[in-house]
Design a protein around this nucleic acid. Structure first.
Lengths: 233, 233
DNA sequence: AAATTTGCATGTTTTAAAGCATAATTCTAA
DNA sequence: TTAGAATTATGCTTTAAAACATGCAAATTT
């Protein structure tokens, strides 16, 4: 199979949501400009203050969007799974990036120059609506996060983070084990607490039989309890 | 002057930014659907969980967008001044509102049904870009706020809030006095702290000759120092 | 004008979470 | 395969901010 038709296969199968919104000329434009890049575990995809150039599409793996804060503290803002798009916000705002993206594990990503995306949006209202909707959903999420991360106590924040991991990456075949294996430090960076407190609170949850912990494998035993802790104390 | 031509005057003068993007048919559509509403001080414009129906345009006054959190604690997310638009995010996300809006002082607002806005976006790419850009700027701001509100200490958060007030509402004729007079409680809700601590820290800033405080009149004496405190300790 | 409410100011106490120290364990690379 | 590094686990100490209490002043209501 030619490189091009392989690419077409990859793109048309994987970009499902966006792909269906395009006409044949637009599809050709994508094929001509789409590039695949592979990233190793923990490799940085782009960094805060960089100028945005590409629309990124996660094809395989896991990616975190994060912001480095005060005293080396890092806040994870969003997590991506295949097939999701990111990296476009800063371009649309005419700003440099305010956050960084890195591969959580070995990942494969596609790029499309934002100038191409811009042209396509100009001529495709469905595409415009796709981005308007994505931006709107993200903005609602960030506004909500401002309140939960500042007002919830540690246990509530950790419970919320675990629920986010469930919703984002789901379970292994057993229907219990989280399908993501992250360092305690990343759990902490997700839920706005120190690594010590993430470890401590995970242990507490384990003791209370809400979860079990085996290294980085986290099993959700009592999801209802988790949601209750996330919502209230 | 007829009601309609008065309205046209109000709209064409005040909606400047959006108005210039429209053709005459679109302008007619706005004139037919635009309504003016007046709100008293502290009156709620819409509330969290409501379904979004209108695009709101602040014509006169000041509006806060906020979210009620845990234990009666409120977080102010954004502040609006004339002429700014809000209330569209939830509609675009196909969600109920996740935050509430209320008038900070007696205010005058215009409404346009979101269904009308949607139709206009469908046929006007500049209008689409207007909202894409606004959403993108807001999302960058919210993502940044997540980090500053969780990681900065009280003094840094208050300094940042005061700078936000400068940038949003500016100064009186003296070039020093903030052009907004808000209760200590709102200052606290803007900077994620208790009312007591807002009062305490304002007093501390006054003692350090960074600001002067006379009731709700706040004079910025040393803006450079304020920016330094916001950035670092 | 008196009474009541509301908002501002400040001191004291309590507490949640950070910071720090030290092991134990697991991973990684020479 | 072993030495070293990184990660996880736990206990102890410190601290920033919340919670609480009280007094005072200004504004509103009666």
């Amino acid at each position: 199979m030619s490189i091009k038709s392989t690419l077409e296969k990859v793109i048309s199968e994987d970009l499902a949501e966006l792909w269906s919104l395009l006409n044949s000329e637009e599809k050709r434009q994508i094929l001509d400009n789409f590039e695949i890049h592979n990233f190793k575990k923990n490799q940085i995809i782009y960094a805060e203050k960089d100028d945005p150039v590409y629309l990124w599409c996660l094809l395989k793996g896991k990616v975190k969007l994060y912001k480095d804060g005060i005293g080396g503290r890092q806040q994870i803002l969003r997590l991506y799974r295949p097939i999701q798009y990111f990296g476009y916000r800063a371009y649309f705002a005419h700003e440099p990036y305010v956050s960084s993206a890195s591969a959580f594990e070995a990942s494969s990503l596609g790029t499309l120059p934002m100038d191409v995306v811009k042209n396509m949006i100009d001529n495709n209202r469905d595409l415009a609506w796709f981005f308007i909707r994505e931006l709107s959903k993200n903005l609602g999420g960030s506004d909500t996060k401002i309140v939960t991360l500042t007002q919830k106590h540690i246990r509530g924040r950790l419970a919320e983070a675990l629920i986010l991991l469930i919703d984002n990456y789901g379970f292994e075949e057993d229907g219990k084990t989280l399908k993501i294996y992250m360092a305690r430090e990343d759990v902490a960076n997700l839920s706005n607490m120190t690594t010590s407190n993430a470890i401590r609170t995970l242990s507490a949850f384990a003791q209370e039989r809400i979860i079990t912990v085996d290294g980085r494998r986290i099993k959700i035993v009592d999801e209802a309890k988790l949601r209750q802790i996330s919502k209230f104390g």
